[in-house]
Amino acid sequence: MAYLLQQLANAVPVAALYAALAFGYAVAFGVTRRADITYGALFAFAGQMLLLFTDVGYNRLILVLPAALAFGVLLAFLYTTGAGLLIGRVVVRPLVARSPNTVIVAAFGVLIVLMETAWLALDTRTVWLPPFFNTRVVFWTDGAFEVTLTQIQLFNTAVMAALVLIGAGVLRYTTWGRIWRAVTDEPLAAELCGVSAEKVFLVAYGSAALVATVCGLLSTSYYGTMDFGAGLIFGLKVLMVAAVGGYGNPLKSAGGAAVLGATETLWSAYGPLIWRDLVIFSLLVLLLVLSRRERIIP
């Protein structure tokens, strides 16, 4: 019983991460209407920039660890959100307006640029952060077995859950949320009503980049390192689970992604780890087939 409770506790931070990523992706997909692996690349890029600038702050600027981490977080945040806005404005938006299907191809080019930029900046090294905020918080005790999470897991979960809740509130209760829904439904009709579809696009894409950046920073601070392989796996899972949940409803996509994260954690605890990703992707493909909707995406 205690082991099951520990695995359920372990599932909470993973579920929060998947939910936040899926929410941000659904916001961006609402205006692009095309699969975009750039989202996973920005997630990984944020983590690698955190590693790079924390290493620079600690080893070259001789800062103490908290100051080096703050330096890394600040510059990684600026670089990644700036890259996301630049990609949205210069690459994705023009292609969506002229030839939407090329967005998928362009995303691969953006992925390669971000990956090689980070790899060269890190001088092809794998950098690790030292562990911090690893004090355990005990929730339940069964003899010698304690059900715990660390402080950083609880902090990350709270921030990611807040991202989803705040984002859902903005989309549901604010003027911008109504405008976003209008543009996602029919951008031309929205423009005829005086709405700038281009501005809404940039805000939506920038917001998605912001979510990917925050999630990348928090994930790297917990796991200690980040690579583009991990970013792509996260991105593909989010892309598929968001498709199952329906891109038109970011909150629904976030809920589906949270279920996926919990399922993945429980499989890691009770099933063979080597088959985890195969089983998860197979389950997602099955759900996509069962929930297939006959519709035309313009």
Rank of each mutant, 00 (worst) to 15 (best):
V103L: 08
V103I: 13
V103S: 08
V105R: 01
A106K: 13
A107P: 10
A107M: 09
F108S: 08
F108R: 07
G109E: 08
V110G: 04
V110K: 07
L111H: 13
L111E: 02
I112A: 08
I112S: 05
V113S: 10
V113K: 01
L114T: 06
L114F: 04
M115G: 04
M115E: 14
M115K: 14
E116C: 01
T117W: 07
T117V: 12
A118T: 12
A118V: 11
A118D: 12
W119T: 15
W119D: 13
W119I: 06
L120V: 14
L120D: 06
L120G: 00
A121S: 15
L122I: 07
D123A: 15
D123T: 12
T124F: 14
R125E: 13
R125Q: 15
T126W: 07
V127C: 03
W128F: 13
W128D: 10
L129W: 00
L129R: 00
F132L: 07
F132S: 12
F133P: 01
N134L: 09
T135F: 04
R136V: 05
V137P: 01
V138C: 02
V138P: 00
F139T: 09
T141Y: 03
D142F: 11
G143F: 05
A144S: 15
F145M: 13
F145S: 10
F145P: 04
E146R: 14
V147W: 09
V147A: 09
T150V: 05
Q151V: 11
I152K: 10
Q153V: 03
L154K: 00
L154V: 13
N156D: 07
T157F: 02
T157E: 03
M160V: 01
M160K: 02
A161D: 00
A162E: 01
L163Q: 08
V164H: 05
L165Q: 01
I166P: 02
I166L: 07
G167R: 09
L171M: 13
L171S: 02
L171K: 06
Y173N: 14
Y173H: 14
T174M: 04
T174E: 02
T174K: 08
T174W: 09
T175E: 09
T175M: 03
W176I: 10
W176K: 03
W176S: 04
G177M: 03
I179M: 11
I179F: 01
W180A: 11
W180Y: 15
R181H: 14
R181G: 03
A182C: 07
A182E: 04
A182G: 13
V183P: 02
V183F: 05
E186L: 08
E186W: 08
P187C: 03
L188G: 00
A189I: 10
E191W: 03
L192D: 05
L192N: 07
L192F: 13
C193N: 14
G194R: 10
G194F: 06
V195P: 07
V195D: 06
S196P: 04
A197T: 05
A197K: 05
A197F: 06
E198V: 11
F201V: 09
L202E: 05
Y205A: 09
A208F: 08
A209S: 15
L210I: 06
A212T: 03
T213V: 03
T213I: 03
C215H: 01
C215R: 01
G216W: 08
G216S: 11
G216L: 09
L217Y: 02
L217V: 01
S219K: 05
S219P: 00
S219I: 11
T220A: 00
S221C: 01
Y222I: 09
Y222V: 10
Y223N: 09
Y223L: 14
T225M: 08
